[in-house]
């Protein structure tokens, strides 16, 4: 699957129903050591373990999801990533993944710094709040935007820190991070033109 997504092809085939997973599956080197923050039921980690032979670990706050992850054989720790990484030694992982999780954390900057303390590289995937549909939705409705990407009512949304492609680039520069790769996705298409306006999901590979 990941091979199909590789190279200069414009289209990304879904991995486990998600195009950002396909990008992550493409980035992660075989045999590496991976920590997935907010790993849910561990589907991505299981895929990476089976297809790339990675040493896969995860952190997830929901007991039910942790149980399902462990039941599928993935080593997941039940805990809060906002304050749960302190125990890990420095540079313990080749990759630390934050897949659609950063916008759900209470302290995104602290989490970002921690992930690059415990990991040599960070893979950050997030929904782009700068997408034109979000902007238009808010402009026309005058309400907190609800789109296919942000489907929640404001009072029940897990997304508590909205960010755009520009926001992340700005933060990465301010933190002195090196962006090794960046991917912008609209549906199954990789896009390059006006990503802050047209990307639904962005995936960054960063390091210190």
């Amino acid at each position: 699957m990941s091979a199909q997504a590789a190279g200069k092809q414009t289209f990304v085939r879904e991995l486990l129903g998600r195009s950002d997973y396909a990008i992550i599956g493409e980035i992660v080197e075989p045999g590496s050591k991976v920590l997935d923050l907010g790993c849910g039921e561990g589907e991505l980690l299981q895929w990476l373990a089976e297809n790339k032979g990675v040493d896969a670990r995860g952190v997830e706050i929901s007991s039910l999801k942790v149980q399902r992850a462990i039941a599928r054989g993935v080593s997941v720790f039940q805990g809060d990533i906002d304050d749960g990484l302190a125990d890990y030694p420095e540079q313990a992982f080749d990759y630390v993944i934050l897949s659609q999780t950063l916008q759900e954390t209470h302290h995104p900057l602290r989490v970002l710094r921690e992930m690059l303390r415990v990991g040599k590289r960070g893979i950050v995937a997030f929904p782009n709040f700068g997408h034109w549909r979000v902007r238009l939705n808010m402009l026309l409705s005058g309400r907190a935007p609800r789109t296919t990407l942000f489907p929640y009512e404001w009072y029940e949304s897990p997304n508590i820190h909205f960010l755009t492609v520009h926001d992340f680039e700005t933060l990465a520069a301010a933190e002195g991070l090196i962006v090794e790769r960046r991917y912008f996705l609209s549906g199954h298409r990789k896009i390059a033109w006006l990503p802050n306006l047209t990307a639904e999901v962005a995936v960054f590979l960063v390091r210190r």
Binding site: V66, Q67, I70, S75, Q78, D87, Y88, A92
Partner: peptide, 10 residues
């Protein structure tokens, strides 16, 4: 975890 051991917990 501080020893980077493979551990699952719930």
């Amino acid at each position: 975890r501080s020893r980077n051991c493979d551990v699952a917990y719930v």
